[in-house]
Design a protein around this nucleic acid. Sequence first.
DNA 1: TTGTACGCGTTATCAC
DNA 2: GTGATAACGCGTACAA
Lengths: 345, 345
Amino acid sequence: MDGDAVPERVRAATLTDVARAAGVSIATASRALNGRGEVRADTRDRVFAVAERLAFRPNVLAQNLLSGRTGTVGLITSDLEGRFSIPIMMGAEDAFGAGATQIFLCDARGDAIRERHHVEALLARRVDGLIVVGSSTNPRPSLGRSIPVPVVYAYAPSQEASDLSVVSDNVQGGRIGVQHLIDSGRKRIAHITGEAEYNAARDRAAGAVGALTEAGLELAGGRVMYGPWNEAWGRGATRMLLEHDPDIDAIFCGSDQIARGALDVLHELGRDVPGDVAVLGFDNWAVVTASSRPELSSIDMQLQELGRVAANLLFAAIADDEGKLEHHQSVACRVVVRGSTTPTA
Amino acid sequence: MDGDAVPERVRAATLTDVARAAGVSIATASRALNGRGEVRADTRDRVFAVAERLAFRPNVLAQNLLSGRTGTVGLITSDLEGRFSIPIMMGAEDAFGAGATQIFLCDARGDAIRERHHVEALLARRVDGLIVVGSSTNPRPSLGRSIPVPVVYAYAPSQEASDLSVVSDNVQGGRIGVQHLIDSGRKRIAHITGEAEYNAARDRAAGAVGALTEAGLELAGGRVMYGPWNEAWGRGATRMLLEHDPDIDAIFCGSDQIARGALDVLHELGRDVPGDVAVLGFDNWAVVTASSRPELSSIDMQLQELGRVAANLLFAAIADDEGKLEHHQSVACRVVVRGSTTPTA
DNA sequence: TTGTACGCGTTATCAC
DNA sequence: GTGATAACGCGTACAA
């Protein structure tokens, strides 16, 4: 009752199976398949044919046990929505190259206990290294020195200066945002951003104010407007701003969601964007930028690039055993221009 | 120059190290640590103390090589933003329990070649099973029968009926959406949704229309309005709807983004939500629901639960070798009520 | 060119 | 109660 209807799964073939079927020793089979040493051409072909037929896949576990390296890396995140960690993971995947290294993704859900637990599990699996992705840009506690493999902190740096960290350059992000607005002819530029408790907010503001000062301009509204990271604050702050300073011609926002709120209020009040007022966001989050009217210009943190850099750093640390690595690296942001800062052609 | 300043990493301790340090054989050490067989209490304590001191972690690779099981599962997604796969992964992580099973996350980026590649890499790592998360709810090609481990298709079912699939019950989702609107006193209910090429759109529409018919009501607007899955369509469709049928009292949308568009237009036209018109979304995507005015009621697909179900099914398939499993499972949606369908107290 | 034998770190099965 | 020893699947010196 089972001959063909239910194709039962067969045990995966081992090198021994291949060797036996090809009528050679496992050493020869191994050499043939790995291209090591000298193997006669027809022997090699026979082995390959058999391996193909049996769908032989070398047992990576056994290889690892021998080599001491697993070709796996753990990525621990606390970013529940995966908004930051997914692009970072994709970048890391890229950098690790075609399947040579695979990534265990773990979600600590902001819980230190759970994080510790995942670290233990990953170490038991003998990962070659760890990437820890923070949930905000604020420095986070180090996992400590007792970990037998290299650790790279991505997005959120470690509080420990001797650890390896890769972060976004938010100061530069703030700077190029303002530069873009100045370049498109704006002079009265305001800055609405998130909570001052976040380094991201303070750094972006510092960059923005710095660029304004260098250009001999003052911040419109008189001060950086810190508040919640949401649309409601974007709306509220924009209203306050326009009341106090009706002739502003650009609003640089610390997040796309804040910018979205700003856009909505400007629209309600009949201000033309970008004609009267330009609006620039931060994060370049497609969900928000694409659905705004007009489409939202934004600063992109290049998280995928950040993932690549983190992966390369980890890779180097694994290989060099922390020879001479740059312990703190930062990834530059770039401006993505859309209709909210420049008139569409 | 290196005694303490640069705490060089040490090789991870092995069972042999522990045994030697404790002055026992590796067999005894193993027994003591695993609680197998009889070991004298003080011997056990000594072994534990040494293991603790050396930060001994059993090499899972070696254990796996012996047991033939790795306690790992591959999760392959094509959902670039991770909007669906992240909650599904979290659910799976939950179901697999505390660190007993770990998940390799791979992003195929919608590319069949890359997917195949990841499958191969995962099989080489001897994962115990595979979860494949689709990017839409449309049935997707099967990975085929040649895979030596169980495969569960999540979110998007496999085209192959004999494969294991877990999906959201979109028909039921459409049904409970309409029921909620009827329960809150609505009678002229319209339905704006995504592209008809998507099963998700058609299924939700079918459920919605079914529930209306059962209640003796007709669909306002005369037909299901299919269109792009974005805010712009939500806005356009809502305008058309109100022109043709000004006295509708509820709009059920096939996605939160479409609903967001509908809300914006209603707001522009001075219609009160939910007083004049109720708006109900689908996906319960916090980013959108929380930033809407008023906050958006929505249908939740319970993706985390879906992940749990998929993981349990996979687990059962691994254990039972596909004994008597329900090959096709679906997860019910639920209504999440917020201000856009019921007046806030 | 090919085969034999060892070791990677565990667990399990024997003896003692 | 404890200690040798054989697996697990592979790569590789070494011998043939």
